[in-house]
Design a protein around this nucleic acid. Structure first.
Lengths: 211, 211
DNA sequence: ACCTGAACACCGTTCAAGT
DNA sequence: ACCTGAACACCGTTCAAGT
């Protein structure tokens, strides 16, 4: 009957899915767990610490069983897995972005990404920079994707989309804004990732040191 | 003596710099402006609308006077300008990421980025995808950069950094995490951007259509 | 060790009423 | 048109006291 730390994290993710990040409240979470709000502060010092535990829980398993094969394939799979992990819970990307996470799962995935690039032939420093860059790309992309989903859920998306088209109609010429709005997020993500990976390959053949 | 919309936005950015995003409160902002909290709701329907106005104010001027020259130079300058604009105010990146912004300045910069790539020879659709991708990279990178700054300001950074090193010390072999932590953010950003741009160049020479 | 009850110092938002 | 005063329904967090 007693609450364990992991129960609190799991409950918090459930409440997150119900209410979104702005609706996630220590009091609502306590109610969901059948407990008084103050009880949560025995398991976590404050809300921020709980959010960090949630963030690390989100990325759990992302680094499991990476396929063997060329680095491009490994790296691509890892990136898609991280994106899917963030999409698995409402506002997941915002939770991860909320603070600088230095928990076990987050570290393990980050390290793996760097190792893949290092084994491919990049010096540690460059591998690290690029792994971070791709991480930030995924984070930013997924934040926007989920922000758009929140907007759509609240019914405000159609109005915003219309305003956007009208605005861009006043621009001259190419209007690529319209061309992009209809591309599904998954496709936009995959394409951006491909471009990045092509850049990495260029770095490998041209860079300061072949291994 | 009367408050205009722009005064509220300017005041909000000032309070943001003082308190950070979590400390930015309608009541504190009202006090800063010498007004009661309810008065703000004559100028903005709610806090979210104010945050969007702040976000658009942040990116004001980012698209001014782009240098002429090769697309790489134009694109790089635009990216660095956006990053600097977000860094100019505490938690600026989080403010911009908070919602899907469809305000004039944001749109203008986005459109410019796409046009630069389109003129370089990319189809509108690809130009849009890539402009978004780089935008997301900048957003994610700057969010983390500022999150780290907040941590440092609260004194929690040193402890976290130590925990991070210890964790990664238990991993075997390469430990690129340590190699990366000391690279200054500006340098990490510039390197990641370069890799991305190399990927774009690859797309231009190989892609589905030369213009 | 783990939780309740109750309080403290706040929030965003609304809205009659003022000027 | 623009703002005050005062309220409503919430927050995160603390802490004695219970079991």
């Amino acid at each position: 009957m007693q609450l364990r730390r992991d129960d609190v994290v799991a409950g918090a993710l459930a409440v997150l899915d119900d209410t979104g990040m702005d609706g996630l409240t220590m009091r609502k979470l306590a109610a969901h767990l059948g407990v008084q709000a103050g009880a949560l502060y025995w398991h976590f010092p404050n809300k921020q610490a709980l959010l960090e535990a949630m963030a690390d829980k989100l990325v759990e398993g992302v680094d499991d069983d990476v396929v063997s094969g060329p680095w491009e394939r490994q790296f691509t799979e890892l990136a898609h897995r991280l994106r899917r992990a963030l999409l698995a819970h409402r506002d997941g990307a915002r939770v991860l972005a909320g603070t600088f996470v230095a928990e076990p799962n987050t570290l393990a995935s980050g390290t793996l990404a760097m190792e893949i690039l290092h084994r491919a032939g990049l010096p540690a420093r460059e591998a690290g920079c690029i792994a971070f860059s791709v991480f930030h790309f995924i984070l930013g992309h997924t934040i926007e994707e989920q922000a758009q989903a929140e907007l759509a859920a609240s019914g405000a998306w159609e109005a915003k989309r219309a305003a956007l088209s009208e605005q861009s109609a006043q621009e001259t010429g190419v209007r690529p804004l319209d061309a992009i709005m209809d591309v599904p997020p998954e496709e936009r993500f995959a394409y951006g990732l491909t471009v990045f990976i092509n850049g990495i390959r260029h770095q490998l053949t041209t860079g300061s040191g072949g291994s």
